[in-house]
Design a protein around this nucleic acid. Structure first.
Lengths: 159, 159
DNA sequence: CTTGAAAAAGCGTTAGC
DNA sequence: GCTAACGCTTTTTCAAG
């Protein structure tokens, strides 16, 4: 699909988009990198087409949004069914992310949001009904998602 | 800051922005909800100001981007230092997310990306140096981040 | 919350270095 | 691969109802 290698310009573009993917325009990035807007636009399109950029999403404060209960449910799935079960879990209302772990008993992590304990109980039941054995359930106190990745540091071509 | 309650219009806006936060314009959402573009823009501004929308971020395929090693490092921190240590961990190159758990021994989860094992080793060492005791380290096989949350289902005002 | 205008900024394409 | 310029489309901002 592409040569698979990102150069400094690509990394810088990812860096700036990571900061504010909605309001940062191509021309704005171009100005900061000392390139033309066309170039940046072409690069972004390539990053999207090649699949490096999978999408642009919201970072929501679920607490303020009315879903104050944020948990991580740790499950066990047979390796043979792990992929399938993980996919099914993602479709449950209130599930925000699913991660599959390579090895071990705790091999599926499910992140959830809820308005109250009824929501959480329902999610637990649905996971159980799917065949995911719940090993542990933890209430998340706080979550920091990094809008900045060091590897994508932005000063290669930058002034 | 606000009354804290989101109505159906707000939830619909969040839903549509969640799909494609960069390319979905206010007018596009307005059309789908049968409202004017101005109204939608005002709502979005309010959601940003009130903090419900914390930001707009990229969903990057780190594998394609050249960082094929994706891990979850589970740590223990004394409750009194947990906040501080979690904040410090977020600044390490390669750390993409940090989650604080309310209770238990495994109370800080650190997600990381890396090009090779040297990156991972360095991150582990830096976490250790901070004072975070590493309890477990797991290689993530696959991650699904949900671009759609059931609670934010979009058909209240929609046609 | 809506409308409607002007102003501004975006994008894709083209041609050329 | 980058730049620059064209034209087109879209968004934004502002006023007013």
């Amino acid at each position: 699909m592409n040569d698979g290698e990102l150069d400094d310009v690509d990394r810088n573009i990812l860096y700036y988009l990571q900061q504010d993917a909605r309001r940062t325009s191509s021309s704005e990035i171009a100005e900061k990198l000392g390139l033309s807007a066309s170039t940046v636009r072409t690069r972004i399109n390539k990053l999207e087409d090649s699949g490096v950029i999978r999408g642009y999403h919201l970072d929501i404060d679920y607490d303020l949004a009315g879903y104050p209960l944020y948990t991580k449910i740790i499950c066990t799935a047979p390796v043979s069914e792990r992929d399938e079960l993980a996919g099914a879990a993602l479709k449950i209302d209130g599930v925000t992310a699913v991660r599959e772990i390579m090895t071990g008993e705790r091999n599926v992590y499910v992140n959830t949001i809820g308005r109250d304990h009824d929501d959480l109980n329902r999610i637990s039941e649905e996971l159980d009904a799917l065949g995911l054995e719940i090993v542990d359930e933890q209430i998340i106190r706080d979550e920091y998602v990094c809008p900045y990745q060091g590897f994508l540091d932005g000063d290669a071509d930058a002034e």
